[in-house]
């Protein structure tokens, strides 16, 4: 019989795997960046990066592609957390791409969310990044379920689902030619529940809008649309003041809150465990447009 009966708990295992992936990026790539939005998944990623590299500095800067339509609380938190960690934060704005003419909105009110890809690719080119570390999870969406942990993108930033590199054991292949890049996903194997359990265990701070708060919303297509400067009420809309929280935060125009009175991480875990709607299904207006919309966006360079 083996003399070690100790096994890693599922959170310890996930943490160890993610640290391993981040260190592989640091070991194999010459100029990586970590995508940090101030959202819960990327907050978990920063804790994992601390575990991977402290007492050293992170071997990569943090990069945020800002649509200009993010919640103030999240942007403030992003800046606060980067400063607290003493790490370099690079912000690139979709609005600058619009000024340059590389992003053209069909209508002034069109969501800028999918245009993040353009700005991201511009940032990759500007800084010569050969790898972007992202916080995507395979449980989020079916186009993600088949994505590699080290996902190859060609010089146009495109993902080709039919032509992915086989990924065996823990042996990752981050080799690229100049102009190509890798998207590395250290938390591929985490679920939404794992994320919340880890946030609780590590006592991680989060932007306040993840917790239950009062907010004016409009019921639309089964989702709650927040009433904001960017998404104002239209004539005839019925505005309700509801107790809500965000399960996922992102561009205001496509991220909806859910009705909830969970005001602590523990209550959120209980709610997550018993919820009946998937994270993106409850909250993402962009994924609902078509069954394949995430797959389409990823082919265009979305992370």
């Amino acid at each position: 019989m083996p003399n070690h009966t100790k096994i890693l708990s599922h959170l310890d295992w996930l943490e160890a795997e993610s640290i391993h992936i981040m260190r592989e990026v640091a070991g194999q790539c010459s100029n990586p960046a970590l995508l940090f939005s101030g959202g819960k998944d990327s907050i978990v990623m920063l804790r994992l990066a601390e575990k991977a590299f402290r007492p050293g500095r992170f071997p990569f800067p943090l990069l945020h592609v800002d649509t200009g339509h993010n919640y103030r609380e999240v942007i403030d938190f992003r800046d606060f957390r980067a400063h607290q960690l003493g790490e370099r934060l690079i912000v690139r704005n979709v609005e600058d791409s619009m000024k340059r003419g590389s992003v053209v909105l069909k209508t002034p009110t069109e969501s800028r969310n999918k245009h993040q890809s353009v700005t991201l690719l511009e940032a990759i080119e500007e800084f010569g990044f050969d790898c972007c570390i992202g916080g995507a999870r395979r449980d989020e969406e079916k186009a993600r379920a088949k994505e590699r942990i080290f996902s190859f993108r060609d010089s146009f930033g495109q993902w080709d689902p039919k032509n992915q590199r086989p990924e065996l054991w823990n042996l990752f292949n981050a080799r690229v030619h100049k102009g190509e890049n890798i998207r590395a996903f250290p938390i591929s194997n985490w679920t939404e529940l794992d994320i919340w359990q880890y946030i609780e265990r590590e006592a991680l701070e989060l932007p306040s809008i993840y917790f239950a708060h009062k907010r004016p919303v409009i019921r639309k297509n089964g989702l709650l649309q927040p009433v904001t400067d960017v998404t104002p009420a239209k004539p005839g809309d019925v505005i309700e003041e509801m107790l809500v929280r965000f399960r996922t935060v992102g561009d205001i125009t496509c991220t909806a809150p859910v009705e909830s009175d969970a005001d602590t991480v523990h209550k959120i875990i209980e709610e997550t465990a018993t919820t009946t709607i998937t994270e993106r299904g409850a909250t993402r207006m962009d994924d609902q447009t078509s069954e394949a919309s995430m797959e389409q966006r990823k082919k265009e360079g979305y992370f």
């Binding site: 599922h10 395979r138 449980d139 079916k142 186009a143 379920a145 088949k146 689902p161 039919k162 992915q164 591929s188 194997n189 679920t191 529940l193 069954e291 394949a292 797959e295 389409q296």
Partner: peptide, 21 residues
């Protein structure tokens, strides 16, 4: 059922990873 690319061709291209607890 996986990707649009798979449904178009009526094949399963790739390993998919799924999770439960």
């Amino acid at each position: 059922d996986g990707l649009q690319a798979e449904r178009e061709q009526g094949i399963t291209i790739d390993v998919a990873y799924r999770y439960f607890t």
